[in-house]
Write a protein that binds this DNA or RNA. Sequence first.
DNA 1: AGTCTTTCTGACAGCGCTTTCGAACTTCGC
DNA 2: GCGAAGTTCGAAAGCGCTGTCAGAAAGACT
Lengths: 346, 346
Amino acid sequence: MSTIKDVAKKAGVGIGTVSRVITGKGFVSEQTAKRVQKAVDALGYRPSPTARKLQAGKSQTIGVFLPVIRGSFYAPILHSLYTELQARGRHMVVAFGQTVTNERQEALEGAQFLIDHGCDGLILMATALKLRDVENLIVEQPRLALLNKHFDRYAEMCFVPDHEAAGAAAARALWQLGHRRFATIEGPEISADNVLRMRGFYKELTALSVDVERIPRFYGDFMPKGGWAGARALLAGKVRFTALFCANDEMALGALSYLSHEGVAVPDDISVMGYDGLDITTYTVPPLTTIGVPWTEIVLSTVNYLLNCCYGTKLPVERNPPATILWRGSVAAVGTAKKVKQQPAS
Amino acid sequence: MSTIKDVAKKAGVGIGTVSRVITGKGFVSEQTAKRVQKAVDALGYRPSPTARKLQAGKSQTIGVFLPVIRGSFYAPILHSLYTELQARGRHMVVAFGQTVTNERQEALEGAQFLIDHGCDGLILMATALKLRDVENLIVEQPRLALLNKHFDRYAEMCFVPDHEAAGAAAARALWQLGHRRFATIEGPEISADNVLRMRGFYKELTALSVDVERIPRFYGDFMPKGGWAGARALLAGKVRFTALFCANDEMALGALSYLSHEGVAVPDDISVMGYDGLDITTYTVPPLTTIGVPWTEIVLSTVNYLLNCCYGTKLPVERNPPATILWRGSVAAVGTAKKVKQQPAS
DNA sequence: AGTCTTTCTGACAGCGCTTTCGAACTTCGC
DNA sequence: GCGAAGTTCGAAAGCGCTGTCAGAAAGACT
């Protein structure tokens, strides 16, 4: 790699002049600029971001923490993040979590890593973070945005889909189709993500005078396996139901798979509703009716907000894009469906 | 952020001494070391990786290029990459491609970015790369590993599943179950990834004296949508078939979805085989029989190889972990299956 | 004492860059 | 023809760190 010195020597000027030509700041005569440019091209010189960062303190880089990058959920979010940042001419460094159980610790370490590596701002997607974590973090790096986690005290920097409203919408939709007997496959009981959407779901049903205490529930792991296990447990239980609400799409996939395996027809025998709106749900069998969370929009706003913080840009920030119900084939009105199109396998 | 100077002042020593304590190199008396350590703790000092990189030329960071991070395919690979690197105490910086059509250009730009940012080595997953691209790249950064792309000339640094053998295995397996009439949903015609596995598939069938010229094929986009379109086109065609081989799992998902939509029973009417072994294929309806590509092992070897290059470690590198057939429910022997369990929807 | 090790420590150069600062050179108005 | 103002450019400082080097301190020898 050639350095600024090489260019200066080749062009017969001082390094300051080269720098001025590169950055476009300060006065340089047309002639000199041309000579320098020629040397730059000849040597294939590109300034070192590392040296720039050390000098300037700014790196044009945003740090991102994501809990984990398996499954189908985080990939599109990462993709949006990357695309938006790229489009605004900034770079992205990612730290991931590895385990499900230790998200908080990993997020803290990840954030530390990102700060140390000179990111100008941080986007943290970590539901497990506590208020005091944020308070500590903010001291070191005030340019912070939180994805999918809300603190009243830091409402400004928090970007969260309205999970509670979305959960309520799911309940209402199912009710309006005539469903009265529900079952749910929740995520991990402690997961804030799960709690919110399920709270919305149960609250709405309560308002609709359903006795939610009697709704059979299963706590899964947000993965297809959990959905499979959940469907099995629920089917084995005594309480019959016509509508199954899953706290995320991946579990819904598992549930769909088990139901099919057992010869239970969806939606004829049981309607299944997912949550998230993963791309893949268009192509399940049957296609999954699910709650479409507007992640792309939310990510866009998050990025814009942070960029405004970091670089004084004036990009638009939208606060509450609503979730929508993606109507597919896995939910039907009660009584409408033809009976048992499919027989048990064995 | 406190700097090494602050620590030195606080501990009443020179900055060199602090550096020696931090890095553990050179002689420092127990006493002094303790004093320095105390200052470090008090100030919460952590050395700046940026400054270190500038000074040392090494960054303990590996750069990774991935074509795109949508869909379900790259996420587990990224995850493996990250986990392995993390486990070996190195960092990862990722550059992604954005479009499907411009992979080569994007890979080149991504690699450039990673080099500029001081990565000690590069892992490039870009099938579209040409030999001369690699030749150019290697001048700037000889510590290179290529994932899923093979050049005879650089066999050392290339880590590729044996797609051709895997494709052949798929053909053989289908044949052995009595299938004689095949159809295929390929990936993009120019995709090397697609070409290899399909070549293996057709070659093997030819060896088994199937006239592969008469096999109806559809060129998809490696995405569920393409699989859906492929299944529709193939079903609409005149040539009947009992086995459908899809060049990747995502298209198989789409195909499965269309077949179900049309009331075609899988595997009773048509056996469907995928390729990749995505996690999710365990939970499709029916569960998808697919070719399990040992990405985790391949990634592990790639990382180890590159780490050996960069840091002189002696980590084990395995060259050719074989693909395996993941037997699920979407493939059956011809004639075995019960007839038409399911009726067309309309 | 004087010399030689051995052990420890601070000063300082330098990684590649940006940004002052002031010197040198123009241009202009009077 | 001379000072003021405007331009242009090189020297040099400094971002935070590591590594070299030589000097200081402390023993272990003549």
